[in-house]
Design a protein around this nucleic acid. Structure first.
Lengths: 148, 148
DNA sequence: ATACAACTTGAAGTCAACTTCAAGTCAAGC
DNA sequence: GCTTGACTTGAAGTTGACTTCAAGTTGTAT
């Protein structure tokens, strides 16, 4: 079963032009063509594209994804390099998770700050708050961040 | 105590040109100048810049960060808008966390795949693996993703 | 056979977020 | 007072990831 670029794009929820761009950049060397030159995507190709989407959302630049694709087609001699790249990206994901944790705590604090201000009608309400009135999980932050 | 742009950039581990760019884009309305026009950063400014860095790493575009900065200076009338923006960004962070979870599972599977291949010297080792030999946490994935 | 939507390409355009450049100014040490 | 390194600006250049455009081709439906 084959799909056109438009059908595949719909399945993956991206623009057809994006897939053409990826192809031009060498990220889709596996895609076959009809005798007339029309791209024919297979179900199997979708798994590669899902992997691609995953790596992309994890912040890997297209150039590195392309390296991975190239190495994959070069066979067992490139296993080490592929493993290195994955380890590096895994590390990057762990760091991003830590970063998002920090950001979430900060956002939760700011959210509490503005919810409280909204109820009171003014940010000035925070001037008269004792440390005990600040939810416990934010105490460490309030020492660092003052108003905003 | 004041810092020059170079000192502040070093503290925050960014290029001075980046801080000038942020200033030009209206993200640093709080920065004072010397009589000669030199930017003079205060310790207090660093907290704003940390918030900025946090939001940026959470994927918020500079334009939205600027809106937030602008609203903050406009006073209590903009509390609702600020809260909306924070809620929206909080939701985005939660989605990103989910996305990173998925990506991490995928990377861990791929890592196991290539570690196994590295030990065997070839990816072909996976052709002769029974489903029971695949670590349990990856079983759901292997159904979807085949080799690579 | 013809119409027509969806495909093809290369080239150019866009956008965000910086970075670099050129020409000049500031300020700390000698 | 002069040197020197760090600062100032506006303008232009860069990078990554697309998107849009124009001109032409493919393939399905009637």
């Amino acid at each position: 079963m084959f799909y056109t670029i438009g059908e595949m794009a719909r399945k993956l929820n991206v623009a057809p032009s994006t897939l053409r761009y990826y192809d031009k950049e060498g990220l889709l060397p596996f895609v076959e063509r009809s005798s007339g030159g029309i791209r024919m995507f297979k179900d199997e190709d979708m798994e590669w594209l899902r992997l691609l989407g995953c790596l992309k959302k994890a912040g890997m630049p297209l150039k590195e994804i392309r390296s991975f694709m190239d190495w994959s087609r070069q066979g067992d001699a490139t296993i080490d390099r592929r493993l290195d790249l994955l380890e590096k990206q895994r590390q990057s994901v762990l760091e991003q998770q830590k970063q998002l944790e920090d950001t979430l705590l900060m956002l939760d604090y700011k959210r509490w700050y503005y919810q409280t201000a909204q109820e009171a009608g003014t940010c000035a309400v925070h001037d008269s708050l004792t440390p005990e009135q600040v939810p416990e999980q934010f105490r460490a932050l309030t020492a660092e961040w003052e108003k905003g």
